[in-house]
Design a protein around this nucleic acid. Structure first.
Length: 454
DNA sequence: GTAGGGTTAG
């Protein structure tokens, strides 16, 4: 039992906040109970602290129930209360909840502040709605609330993540005109955006500029650049950064380990990935869901399902919850191990869980069906998929070509192009060589010309 | 109390 003696609400709030930061919610609640017994009255800050912690570590609903308790105690929610809830809804990708909360805040006469607007902008970007995000930004610029550095960071990040990387660069260049100097965090955000869109040259120039401005890279910069190098297949550079980070005394954290293990697995270098994992485990660092996912992927890739499932148990016994990555890794693992039925059972389970998207898991499954030659089953799955991307079409096209159904394959490929999705040169080649070997010369010509004019 | 680095598929 936690027992503390408070002279004021303020000291009780400080104590609750420190337990909340340590994810010790039960202890935080015990402090509140003790405080009330001693006659210390909780205020809006007390409840806001708890709401934020419950949203972060338990669920949005848990946050709502604290808000309910707060109102029962006749304490009126303020802008911070709503900002925490809107941010949580955004983290859980619940767009309509975020918007409803924003409206509710306005209806109750709580004026949004710049934090509210920033959160709303982030919410729209995160849900793939850049136009609405931009509208909120424009209204800030035209209105009375002043944007702050976070507004620009969120804008640059959102623009880059939604494919408007040039607008992101432009906004970065315009920062000074708005009276802001880009900080290290702004550089990190833009760097990440540039690497995601393979803008290697611009990223390199930006890094140089960052150094000239006197900024010393932090561990976020290092991890970002390392990931960028892996993406651009500059493996030597990536491992140089890995070593530089160590030699300069940067603590290697979970982010860095996951980046390196993930990259090694993509290179099929399971042996070094294991070495890396052993280092990571030796440091005794606390593993989160992403770290567990990375290790589960490592075990799946080496077909050690016993260990993979043991990790899964460990994850849950730590009070963590599997996410869409965990399940997708398992589905892909089962597919690659030839257990198609097992993968399908797992997919059905995923469908029941209500994830934001199961596209990647379905793509893995579809690809396995095609490679196994179960083309009818694959077509059935393909047609039933509501969401498709370039990966989906590619697997299907290759699968159809393999069994000689190149007319349907070329139809699908053209559809893919007309939807603006990227296609692989290998898919084109598969169709052309299939036409070639069957002697359909005129069809080759028609296919080529259609590809040129989408 | 907002944002920024790590994990999945062809």
């Amino acid at each position: 039992m936690v027992r503390r003696y408070f002279s004021s609400t303020n000291s009780m709030n400080i104590c609750i906040a420190s337990f909340c930061r340590a994810k010790e919610l039960l202890k935080a609640e015990a402090v509140l109970v003790d405080g009330i017994k001693l006659g210390v009255v909780p205020d809006v800050v007390t409840y806001n602290t708890l709401i934020d912690a419950y949203c972060r570590f338990v669920s949005l609903d848990a946050g709502f129930s604290v808000m309910h308790r707060m109102e029962e105690a006749r304490i009126v929610p303020n802008v911070v209360t709503y900002n925490s809830l809107i941010a949580a809804a955004t983290r859980y990708r619940l767009l309509s909840q975020s918007i409803d909360l924003f409206d509710e805040m306005l209806c109750r006469g709580v004026s949004p502040d710049i934090w509210s607007y920033n959160t709303l902008i982030h919410c729209f970007f995160r849900n793939g709605r850049p136009n609405e995000a931009y509208n909120v930004f424009r209204n800030i610029i035209l209105g009375e609330t002043m944007p702050d550095v976070a507004t620009y960071n969120i804008m640059i990040n959102g623009l880059c993540k939604n494919g408007y990387v040039d607008n992101g660069i432009m906004m970065f260049r315009n920062l000074k005109r708005h009276g802001f100097v880009p900080g290290l965090d702004t550089y990190n955000i833009l760097l990440d955006g540039l690497y995601k869109w393979r803008r290697w040259g611009t990223a390199k120039r930006l890094l140089l500029e960052m150094g000239q401005s006197g900024y010393v890279p932090n561990s976020i910069t290092y991890t970002t650049v390392m990931k960028g190098c892996f993406m651009c297949r500059k493996y030597e550079d990536a491992f140089d950064i890995f070593n530089e980070m160590k030699s300069r005394g940067y603590a290697f954290d979970s982010f860095a380990y996951c980046t390196v293990i993930g990259a090694l697995l993509k290179l099929s270098n399971v042996e070094d990935a294991y070495k890396c994992m052993n280092h990571m485990v030796k440091t005794g660092m606390e593993l989160d869901v992403v770290a567990y996912n990375t290790l589960i992927n490592l075990f799946c890739k080496s077909l050690n399902f016993e260990e993979a499932y043991r990790m899964l148990d460990e994850l849950e016994s730590q009070g963590l919850e599997c996410d869409v990555y965990t399940h997708t890794i398992l589905v892909d693992g089962l597919c690659k191990a030839g257990d198609i039925k097992g993968a399908e059972r797992h997919l059905r389970k995923m469908d029941m869980m209500g994830f934001f998207s199961t596209l990647v898991a379905y793509n893995c499954f579809l690809d396995a069906l095609c490679k196994t030659g179960w083309i009818e089953h694959a077509l059935h799955v393909f047609n039933s998929m509501k969401e498709k991307d370039g990966f989906t079409y590619s697997s299907m096209v290759q699968g159809l070509c393999r069994v000689g159904r190149f007319r349907l394959a070329s139809k699908l490929l053209l559809k893919c192009v007309s939807h603006g999705m990227p296609i692989l040169a290998a898919d084109k080649r598969a169709i052309l060589s299939a036409y070639h070997s069957s002697g359909f010369k005129s069809e080759i010509k028609a296919f080529r010309s259609k590809l040129r004019v989408p």
